[in-house]
Write a protein that binds this DNA or RNA. Sequence first.
DNA 1: CTAAAAATGTAGCTTTGGTTACAAATTAAA
DNA 2: TTTAATTTGTAACCAAAGCTACATTTTTAG
Lengths: 146, 146
Amino acid sequence: MSRSIHKLVVRPSAQQAENLRRSRRDRASEIAQDYVEAIVDLTAESGEARVTDLARRLGVTHVTVNRTLARLRRAGYVNSKPYRAIFLTNAGQKLAEESKKRHETVVAFLRSLDVSEKVAELDAEGIEHHVSPETLAAFERRLKRR
Amino acid sequence: MSRSIHKLVVRPSAQQAENLRRSRRDRASEIAQDYVEAIVDLTAESGEARVTDLARRLGVTHVTVNRTLARLRRAGYVNSKPYRAIFLTNAGQKLAEESKKRHETVVAFLRSLDVSEKVAELDAEGIEHHVSPETLAAFERRLKRR
DNA sequence: CTAAAAATGTAGCTTTGGTTACAAATTAAA
DNA sequence: TTTAATTTGTAACCAAAGCTACATTTTTAG
């Protein structure tokens, strides 16, 4: 194919390449979502979100949290100062709300298929970042219909 | 000045931390799955899978393909020699079959929820790597029931 | 108040997956 | 068969996300 007819078959490949490229691009924001969600939860639970709390919750070292927070600060999702608690910007709060809602929908949907609670949580963690608005709407439709 | 206390590494990981850590670990094999699937497809379509074909299909440069193939060779999924076509090992074929089946199930399932074909393909690309056997079984159950 | 403990920050290394630029090998064409 | 085009390989770079080791700051206990 490479040497003869590749131009004739370019369409399907192009589509899939685009799909995969999107997959990869999306990944950049997945971690951001995990972080803002965790920040919201921790703030609700204990009044403030600290680096160490985040590290424990996210299963990484405080060093990783630190560096990632720097990126999120640059991206405008969080406000934080050295040795102080971490706060979300408006953009960060919006992202967190959307993420949380999506997460809950995915979990509820999986539960509605009789997936066990533990596995539903587990799978949702990975799946939620790849659910488009259209698919999310389909999930919600299904949930309402029972 | 240096206190240099050798702290023992404590791992009191919460459930969610474990979930996220799994997410990350899983990611390592996602690319492998994309590659072996693409190799199967290309071989079926045109008799052999070449570096350039893979690059086009996966939406990356041939350099990336090259380096990733080296890793897959090390991992025992592919056999390849310089300037020659790429073949799957038995392990690679097994992985490809499983991946393909999972992909098809996810797409069919989304389609059964009236998600459009294009979006179903798009979302499946990201979702399929995070679907546990239990959830996959739930999808299949649902598909049979209609 | 002081000293130890805990939290946070910084330096520097690793791996992975991406890139461009250029070199070498193979294939196709004149 | 010699040359041009295409494919493949290599070198050298980048950024993200992970780590350990160590330094600094803040908090807490005595």
